[in-house]
Write a protein that binds this DNA or RNA. Structure first.
Length: 645
DNA sequence: CTTACTACAGTTTTT
DNA sequence: CTGTAGTAAG
């Protein structure tokens, strides 16, 4: 297929700052890919001087694969296609000396971060999870806004915020002494260093000569600053974004960055991609009318050359049981008449918990389905434990991982022993691992628990030594000697769960060993790199097999961004759900409207809404009203199906 | 040190 | 209503 006029213009404008406003389904990924090959083939850029930055590993992978199809493989081997965070990590690894970081730092995931904050703030918050969560997001917010602890203290008005700023300081000191970084640091540290150090800035600007950024509307302040520092005054870059699909403001995304771009780069060329290749005219009309209720920084109106399409249906139900029943009935009938596949259908909802009612009905009718929930593979307890062991092999000083596995499986090291160890480690200022190796500890304390600890650390340190030269043998020995499978069978609620957990562990182990051996990948990598990949990427990405099965797709609206389906059910169209009650309270309806817009624009051929009159919430029924978004749509294009009692 | 009970909170979540 | 995390008793 040929590029349309605007797409062609977007590809070929490479001499200055460029903003591509790409509406839903307008072929933006294709433009990015074409632009990369245009830069290489027509403009003489060397691949190693081009960087394309995305938010997700999935998007990065897609671009990589598609560039590979259009360009010769050897040409693009050094092309930089990565996420913001992976690029930041690469930067930190190269510049760790200037950042005053030891080379063997470990990366924290959100769980470990929460755990650390909980631990260091117990005396203030007494394990109040809500407060710790608030603190976690506050610190993240500060970091994303390039605010250090001192500035945070100055900015804080309330007593609570001052305490939070103090905790931020404690947390920073903690991460510095233990040589750990969190996700936000991967952006923050490179940004601060590039800003301060002109030599390094020049070096990186010479390295990355053309920058492309995908999903630009999702960038936060520090990411935008990073972009500016990387492109410098040369300003050879392209950002691609759509303000109507900005649905991550609660994570710090600033759609205003689109406007800032115009101010910071007056010569900015703005190119709009408004031709939609996905949806029927009717679906686009409805989407355009809905989103016109939001204020806009750039005017944009999607159009389609496809047929007008079927009328949109609205299914009303008494409660969520009937809602799911009627939606699935509709799906079954539609599939029989149109002879479609199950995988042509998607059920989209606001909150993960809404999937339950649908799952029940799908099971009842024996319909294959796939729920994409974001409870990552890595958050499963059996995986977290195993990972903690593997992290200890690469960085024994990782106290969080050490604490997690110290008594898993049970080896008679209890709370009292751990408390003594913790105290002692603070006195001699060493990590828990190294404190446990210190014979002085056992001269001070002599208890059953301490003797268990001494045995454990003797065993563990040998595995750690082994891992330095023979990581695969070390991992195999480890799994065998802790008898992890046995422990799982013992602790699991039932045998089904145990089998699943053992299966999960084997998936992870096989993946790690494949990586270490270099199977299935171009190059074998070290155990350090394996751990890094696991924290930053998602291993599950390897298991493609499920994607190709014929299954009805269920997911949240957030998770559906970037995808498309022939037939879409947008369920739970009620006030309080979409828009969500919290967003109504915070007067953040615009983002909820964009969420609805994202949902609508996923549909290619048919779109069906559903809602309930009453919905169970925490056990009791609450009355609900149709979402205001349904009422904003042109009613000529909707059919409200009668309620069945 | 382990097990069992109670209290409580409960959107979205790219890395 | 559900799942989880922290505490109190075994």
């Amino acid at each position: 297929m040929k590029l349309n006029c605007n797409q062609k213009q977007a590809v070929e404008f490479v001499t200055g700052p460029c903003l591509i406003l790409a509406g839903a389904g307008s072929g933006k990924t294709r433009v990015i890919i074409e632009k990369i090959s245009y830069l290489i083939n027509q403009r003489g850029y060397l691949p190693q001087h081009i960087a394309a930055i995305t938010f997700t590993n999935k998007a990065a992978r897609e671009i990589k694969e598609r560039v590979m199809q259009t360009t010769q493989q050897k040409k693009i081997s050094r092309l930089i296609i990565s996420t913001f965070h992976a690029l930041g990590l690469e930067f930190i690894k190269q510049e760790y000396e200037s950042l005053k970081i030891k080379p063997h730092f470990s990366l924290l995931n959100t769980y470990d971060q929460f755990f650390i904050l909980k631990k260091i703030t117990t005396k203030y918050f007494k394990n109040n999870n809500v407060l710790v969560k608030n603190l976690t997001s506050m610190i993240s917010h500060w970091k994303n806004n390039l605010v250090n602890p001192i500035q945070a203290m100055q900015l804080s008005q309330s007593q609570r915020d001052k305490l939070f700023a103090h905790c931020y300081d404690l947390y920073n000191k903690h991460t510095q002494t233990f040589n750990i970084l969190d996700f936000d640091d991967l952006i923050l540290l490179p940004t601060l260093l590039l800003d301060k150090n002109k030599t390094i800035q020049k070096k990186w600007q010479d390295y990355i000569r053309y920058l492309l950024v995908d999903e630009y509307q999702d960038t936060n302040i520090s990411q935008y600053k990073l972009i500016k520092l990387l492109v410098g005054t040369r300003a050879h870059f392209t950002v691609v974004g759509d303000d109507d699909q900005s649905i991550y403001s609660w994570r710090g995304a600033q759609p205003q960055n689109l406007v800032l771009l115009k101010n910071d780069f007056p010569s900015l060329k703005v190119i709009k991609l408004e031709e939609n290749y996905r949806s029927s005219k009717r679906i686009l009309k409805v989407a355009n009318i809905l989103i016109s209720n939001n204020s806009h920084m750039f005017k944009k109106k999607l159009f389609s050359t496809l047929e007008y399409g079927e009328v949109l249906k609205v299914i009303t139900a008494i409660d969520e049981d009937q809602e799911s029943e009627r939606v699935i009935q509709e799906l079954i009938t539609h599939r029989l008449i149109k002879k479609t596949s199950y995988s042509d259908y998607a059920i989209l909802y606001r909150g993960n918990y809404q999937s339950k009612a649908f799952e029940k009905v799908l099971v009842k009718y024996k319909i294959p389905y796939k729920i994409t929930n974001n409870i990552s593979f890595f958050l499963r307890s059996e995986i977290r434990n195993l990972l903690a062991y593997i992290r200890i092999l690469t960085n024994p000083d990782d106290d969080i991982s050490f604490l997690r596995i110290i008594n898993i499986p049970k080896r008679a090291i209890g709370l009292t022993t751990i408390k003594k160890l913790d105290m002692f480690s603070k006195n001699i200022n060493k990590s828990l691992y190294h404190t446990s190796l210190d014979l002085k500890l056992y001269q001070h304390f002599n208890s059953k628990g301490m003797r268990s600890l001494q045995n454990f650390i003797y065993w563990l340190s040998n595995i750690v030594k082994l891992a330095k030269h023979k990581p695969i043998l070390a991992i195999r020995t480890l799994i065998q000697e802790i008898q992890y499978e046995k422990w799982i069978v013992k602790t699991a609620i039932n045998t089904n769960i145990a089998t699943m957990q053992i299966n999960n562990i084997n998936i992870l182990l096989n993946w790690i060993i494949d990586m270490l051996l270099g199977n299935k990948v171009d190059q074998a990598i070290t155990l350090d790199q394996v751990v890094e990949r696991i924290t930053l990427h998602n291993v599950v990405e390897n298991s493609k097999s499920t994607e190709e099965q014929d299954q009805v797709q269920l997911m949240t609206l957030h998770a559906s961004k970037g995808l498309e389906f022939p037939h879409v059910f947008l369920v739970g169209m009620e006030e309080g759900l979409l828009p969500h009650q919290n967003s109504i309270n915070n007067n953040n309806i615009d983002e909820e409207r964009r969420l609805a817009y994202v949902g609508i624009t996923r549909a290619k051929k048919t779109l069906i809404f559903s809602l309930c009159q009453q919905r169970r919430q925490y056990g009791q029924f609450i009355e609900s009203e149709p979402s205001r978004f349904l009422l904003e749509l042109p009613q000529d294009d909707l059919i409200w199906k009668a309620l069945i009692h």
